[in-house]
Design a protein around this nucleic acid. Structure first.
Lengths: 347, 347
DNA sequence: ACTTGACATGCAACCGGTTGCATGAAAGTC
DNA sequence: GACTTTCATGCAACCGGTTGCATGTCAAGT
């Protein structure tokens, strides 16, 4: 009996200690009820300052940390939010994720990250898996159908980035404003014929950009020719160079920075000097200034998008309201070193 | 009274429905005890097949989904693992994260992502915040001191990537093999003085690479000089160029590809032609062939590292054992276009 | 026919907090 | 000095599952 008592009791104690101090232990040690300990942490104003003080001291010495899971169970809020992106390896997303996380941090929320590999099925699965453990989800560039998105939104607070579904809070990056500026800029520099190096045919952004370019060009009396790059990638940009030069254009706007970087490399290979002989503008500004010469590009606002989306979600969670917000983020041209006036002669 | 009953009851029902079906509702509907429903989901072999069947059908029609939080509270396991990286925007990490997540997915674990912005303080804070809600953590390129890491490892299962702390399971990408090849390659090309452009001072990889370079150089009778880049970034690489050229070296190995890319741009700016006048090698091979000229680099194995680390962690969690594993992943030189024999004359 | 054991199921305690309500003491009012 | 109000604190139910043990049933063993 004695042996049983000893080993059993000691083991239990040790396991407890390893597993963490509970509210009851603090309560006992401080000579108060469990509820008082709870309140000392959540609503100290309900207790006398001395009691709060004493409890806090005891908690401190015992190394008590409130159990997140238990709290979540009784309150129904666990302070986590999900963030689902199609492809984390695409340089467009990391800054967005980073900004979202920073914003979440400010309100003590943790981020669950999901990567769908561009697959709607995987996206659906992730939302389901997250559903039980997050208070809300931010879907970035969702590949789901409108119906699925609506269905999920009925289950839990949802905010979309770069997806425009009526009635669901969303943050949209409008690249057309920046693209228009790009064309205007080139026109001012004297370029009369411009190539648009297009991206994936089924991309919403590609459509948006192409449309914006055409409309800007026609109002500025600039010639536009489209050269397809098939994929949004360095390689396809590089491969498109011959076709670009064949058009006789003196400048190009590429679907995205990666494509533009490929074009830049292709031009260098063909001894066409940028910006002296040819002007080039990218989109999304994901490369910063890392190319040489530094690439002029259209800003992407992904950082703001991440920040705004998360803060919008948190706001919804805290006010319990389902605001039908629709934030549109304008873009603009970021001038660097790949554009120059036509026919400019170095001194 | 009637009004109170109606509104109260209905509201409650609606809230319940919105909040999710509970195990009790399923139990009532199926005419069994709550425990049976629980077992139908967790240990169906304990119940008769017919009972399981009936419960499952009822659960299905009611749309019952087990509450993750409640389960976590009683079992102590919530099926989440944390993944903490210093800088998600650094292209080295996304593929690693992606691979880790894929691996976690296979065992139905969810990933909590943390970004420390290279700050040990933030890293500490994140580990603390995660601690309550994850079963284990993978720390990638931790900037914490050995003591802090040990302290955290005492609290919960921990796996390290690119950090070598005794007694703590770790996955190491051994860049020294690749770095040695890089130096050998440069030596063969006739370079007698090489600069190492170093990275973050408290980075394990940086130490490892510097050591490997020194040892390779001394055995090959090559001169080594170190120029600090402070941060692993394009900008610091670019800023380091003057110092690099001042050493009189004819080739450089940079801490990582980003730094190398900065150096490349800096050299171009100063009209130093790569590879004709200067040879350059990066590390981590994160840029593929996107620079011009395409950067010769040391392979990184980050995908394997992410996969192995997560699978190791999950294995630890499931077997409850704390294996002192130490996986080392070898690297090799990836030759591209930024190296050339010294004094080579173009035909 | 009676015991034995295997098996299916239910009961109730437990995980670690939160929270509405009750209680009792101190302070304020007339 | 009796009566209300205010405030700090405790009690106990609850969140939604899991799990050790008890109970009941039915078939096999003798």
């Amino acid at each position: 009996m004695v042996i049983g008592f000893k080993s059993g009791k000691y083991l239990e104690t040790m396991i407890k200690r390893a597993k963490g101090v509970t509210i009851s232990q603090v309560a006992d040690a401080a000579g108060v009820a469990r509820s008082s300990v709870s309140r000392a942490f959540t609503r100290p104003d309900m207790l006398s300052p001395e009691t709060v003080d004493r409890i806090m001291k005891v908690a401190e010495t015992l190394g008590y940390v409130p159990n997140h899971t238990a709290r979540a169970l009784s309150t129904g809020r666990h302070g986590n939010i999900g963030l689902i992106v199609p492809d984390i390896a695409n340089p467009f997303f990391p800054p967005l994720i980073q900004a979202g996380q920073l914003e979440a941090d400010r309100s003590d929320f943790c981020i669950f990250l999901g990567n769908t590999e561009e697959s709607p099925k995987q996206e659906d699965k992730l939302v389901g898996r997250f559903a039980g453990q997050v208070e809300g989800i931010v879907l970035v560039s969702s590949r789901l159908s409108d119906e699925r998105i609506r269905a999920h939104a009925a289950q839990l607070p949802l905010v979309l980035i770069n997806r425009d579904v009526d009635g669901i809070p969303r943050v949209l990056i409008d690249s057309s404003s920046g693209v228009r500026q790009a064309v205007e800029h080139l026109a001012e520099l004297g370029h009369r014929k411009i190539v648009y190096v297009s991206g994936p045919a089924n991309s919403w952004s590609n459509k948006q950009r192409r449309t914006a370019i055409r409309s800007a060009a026609s109002s500025l009396k600039v010639d536009i020719e489209t050269v397809p790059a098939v994929l949004a990638s360095y390689t396809s940009g590089r491969n498109a160079v011959s076709a670009i030069l064949a058009t006789g254009a003196t400048a190009a706007v590429a679907f995205d920075d990666l494509t533009a970087q490929g074009v830049l490399a292709g031009l260098a290979e063909k001894k066409v000097s940028v910006p002296r002989d040819f002007s080039l503008i990218g989109c999304d500004d994901v490369l910063g200034a890392v190319t040489y010469p530094a690439l002029t590009s259209v800003s992407n606002r992904s950082v703001e998008a991440g920040r705004v989306a998360v803060s919008l979600l948190i706001e919804m969670l805290q006010s319990n309201g389902i605001r039908d917000a629709r934030y549109v983020l304008q873009t603009h041209l970021v001038m660097r070193e790949t554009t120059m006036a036509l026919g400019y002669l170095a001194p």
